[in-house]
Write a protein that binds this DNA or RNA. Structure first.
Lengths: 136, 136
DNA sequence: GTATGTGCAAATGGTTTGCAGTGGG
DNA sequence: CCCACTGCAAACCATTTGCACATAC
């Protein structure tokens, strides 16, 4: 029935991936779109979304959990944790190995088969910690 | 400048909180709205959202990270972890103490002042594990 | 009385989709 | 050729907001 369609090459998808790999800022789709548009001025936002979704599906890109806000994307598919600023939403990588969790004890839990985990630290970034910094 | 307004009582807010506390299913705003409407047929979805946001602010309720999808809410404000089914999005509580993380080593990391963390295990729920279960 | 809360409906904003045309294999 | 991919714009859908009225205190 549902055969997965063969993926073709496209300049748009290549550039979307390249530009995402070129930054470490975990951009939103729109931010990435703005970057990509400098190289492909006619690309549409819809195409950026479509390609991001495809790249997610093929594991070349990760969609980071969007806390009610816009989704952010990460070209670093190695497992690593993030810190999110609770005030401005900025997302940063955490260097080093991801936190070790006792996954094995969880396999039976709640009837779920555990595949992995997603860990996000919450905090205040340097900019937002300044006392005179206005709430966005 | 920005004085926090005094909170008054309202039947709507009370019922929203009660109904959220009455379930363990981490409902979306709309699901909660459907429950609440059985008791307050004239309540509007906007009011549910407004009250949920207020209850979040006062810590009586938690908004769970919405993975690109609808936000889910939890009246259990004790720190505890969750499992999310990657297939159907169902969210379940994890019993027992939350995973111990080495927060102290992170305080300096990436210039963030760490406040807490959010941990979500990913997996497949019992229903979605059945091989003949169609993809939603 | 006055400011907060509500219902309603319209606006918003991120994301998805339908369609006709383009282009990779 | 064929079917995946694109640009465009409209559609979608969760959430927010403006407004006039209701109501807690």
């Amino acid at each position: 029935m549902s055969e997965k369609p063969i993926r073709r090459q496209s300049r748009q998808r290549a550039v979307v991936l390249e530009e995402l790999q070129a930054v470490s800022s975990h951009p939103t789709a729109r931010e990435l779109y703005d970057r990509v548009r400098k190289r492909l001025p006619k690309i549409s936002l819809g195409t950026v979304y479509r390609n991001l979704e495809q790249l997610c599906g093929s594991g070349e890109v990760c969609r980071l959990p969007a806390d009610g806000a816009e989704a952010r994307f990460d070209a670093d598919t190695q497992p690593h944790d993030h810190v999110r600023c609770v005030r401005c939403g900025r997302l940063a990588d955490l260097p080093g190995t991801p936190t070790t969790l006792t996954l094995e004890t969880l396999d039976e839990t709640a009837g779920f088969e555990i595949i992995g985990y997603r860990l996000e630290y919450l905090g205040l970034c340097a900019a937002c910690r300044k006392p005179d910094n206005p709430v966005p």
